[in-house]
């Protein structure tokens, strides 16, 4: 493969990636009440990473983002399963989710739900899967 040396792409990427990351995290937390959620947030995050791969090469991204995505996938699945187990300890069916409202210092009245934890697991698994697939293919030259 030819080494792409596109200064404009790289310049744009630097800015765009930050924006997409922020957007992805926003999407993720919006998911509870607005469009968004684990799948979309995770995929958007993965899209940003893909953009980085396309404009830079794999090694330099890996140096700046030292995460083994296979492990990330597994951790995501594990978090999801463990959240599901939570209900079992309270003698409820597997994957029963709970939520309640709390008054936190800065945020004011805030809703905390175990569903968000579950969603984190989903997001991590999605990011991990997408990145494993893309990196595996792009590394195999």
């Amino acid at each position: 493969m030819k080494k792409p040396n596109d200064i404009i792409l790289r310049g744009v990427t630097k800015v765009a990636v930050v924006i997409i990351f922020t957007f992805a995290i926003n999407l993720f937390f919006a998911g509870h009440h607005n469009p968004g959620g684990g799948f979309i947030g995770g995929l958007a995050f993965a899209a940003a990473l893909t953009l980085m791969f396309l404009s830079y090469d794999v090694d330099s991204v890996r140096a700046n983002f030292p995460v083994d995505f296979k492990v990330l996938t597994a951790v995501g699945v594990l978090i999801a399963v463990l959240t599901g187990m939570g209900g079992v300890f309270f003698d409820l069916p597997f994957l029963t989710q709970a939520f309640d409202y709390f008054h936190l210092p800065i945020f004011g009245k805030t809703e905390l739900a175990t569903a968000v934890l579950f969603d984190i697991g989903v997001a991590l698994a999605v990011i991990g899967t997408a990145m494993v697939i893309i990196m595996t293919i792009s590394e195999d030259r």
Partner: peptide, 21 residues
């Protein structure tokens, strides 16, 4: 039931969580 205003997301993570898992 799930404290979520996004019905689709509530279905995914709560009502039918096992599917998502």
């Amino acid at each position: 039931l799930a404290g979520a205003k996004n019905i689709v997301n509530a279905i995914l993570v709560d009502f039918r969580g096992i599917d998502t898992m």
